[in-house]
């Protein structure tokens, strides 16, 4: 258990930052809003696919690393005030 209101260890890069950036990157990688049919309209979506794939898989990796980092911190009791 940790307290949200206490503790403020200054670090330049944290798992929370990595998770935030990765989640935004994955959202970006998915492409269009509401266009579930982009999977069908693949000819329209094609120019997206290379850039979107890089953003998607890079961010997915970031999410996994970030989540493991958080778990590791909780297990070792570090960074939780």
């Amino acid at each position: 258990m940790f307290d949200l209101l206490d503790g403020n260890k200054e670090r330049s890069f944290t798992p929370e930052k990595l998770l935030t950036i990765s989640a935004a990157g994955m959202l970006l990688g998915f492409g269009l809003c509401g266009a579930g049919l982009a999977t069908v309209r693949i000819e329209i979506a094609t120019p997206f696919l290379v850039a979107a794939s890089v953003a998607f898989w890079g961010s997915a990796l970031g999410l996994v690393v970030g989540a493991l980092w958080v778990v590791l911190q909780m297990l070792t009791g570090r960074g939780r005030g």
Binding site: L4, D6, N8, E16, L19, T20, A23, M26, G81
Partner: peptide
């Protein structure tokens, strides 16, 4: 909220937004 705790809230919001969206 201290910086680190604010980032924790932000990260939760971002990951939750990804899943919910």
């Amino acid at each position: 909220l201290a910086d680190e705790r604010r980032w924790m809230v932000t990260a939760a919001a971002a990951v939750g937004a990804l899943v919910g969206s």
